[in-house]
Design a protein around this nucleic acid. Structure first.
Lengths: 110, 110
DNA sequence: AATATTTGACGTATATTTGCGTCAAATAAA
DNA sequence: TTTATTTGACGCAAATATACGTCAAATATT
């Protein structure tokens, strides 16, 4: 009985909320920022960077993949994780729009 | 055994993720945007605007209050809901910083 | 005073998230 | 070929989130 109502909202709202949800955990924020800061793809265990077990980190990575923010190509034994520039650009666009819509400049409380 | 590890992350990451989490539902995004678009406080049942029951909407409002994005003063029988400019400004700052850190311009995948 | 409206608090049921252990497939190294 | 490494898939248990019904307190209305 919980949730299943999300599709009753306008598509744009759902898209925005879905991105927010994908980033609603510090591990996922950190993974994204780690990849961004490295300025390149990462081969090796990303879980070394986080205070969580490998399996758990993998699950967060999976979620970020699912929403299209990162990709992972197999490279021999290791996997190469990259930001997905397309998804990231889309995310930034959505966030930017959200920020602009939340204009509070001439907000008056009578 | 689930979660309780969030405090193992750096405070800034947690703050960012907490904001994302607060917006991780279309209802909450819509409530914020509704208040922003009205350019003023709203007296009356916000749940009229959403495809959800009143109790449920109230719960989402409560979460937005908890994180400091909206306020609600009692005004006679009704309650006046407002954006909290301070919280909103802080949110926008956090989001803006997140976007900037996610620079993908000179991201190279070798 | 009695009644109606409005809204938060509380409880409940279901769904999802989180965190992790274990296992199996795939490749590298011996 | 045997033995490590690496990583995704699967499943489990606990915690949270979601959605809502019901109730009670507070203020208006009659």
């Amino acid at each position: 009985m919980a949730q299943a109502k999300s599709e009753l909202f306008k598509e744009e709202l759902s898209v925005t909320a879905r991105y927010f949800k994908a980033l609603a955990h510090p591990a996922r924020v950190q993974i994204l920022q780690f990849l961004a800061k490295s300025k390149s793809c990462i081969t090796g265990d990303i879980s070394d960077e986080l205070p969580l077990g490998r399996t758990t980190v993998n699950q967060h990575i999976k979620e970020l993949k699912k929403i299209g923010l990162i990709t992972g190509h197999i490279e021999g034994v290791k996997t190469k994780y990259c930001l997905d520039p397309k998804g990231v650009t889309e995310l930034k666009k959505v966030l930017q729009l959200f920020i602009e819509e939340l204009d509070v400049k001439d907000y008056c409380c009578d």
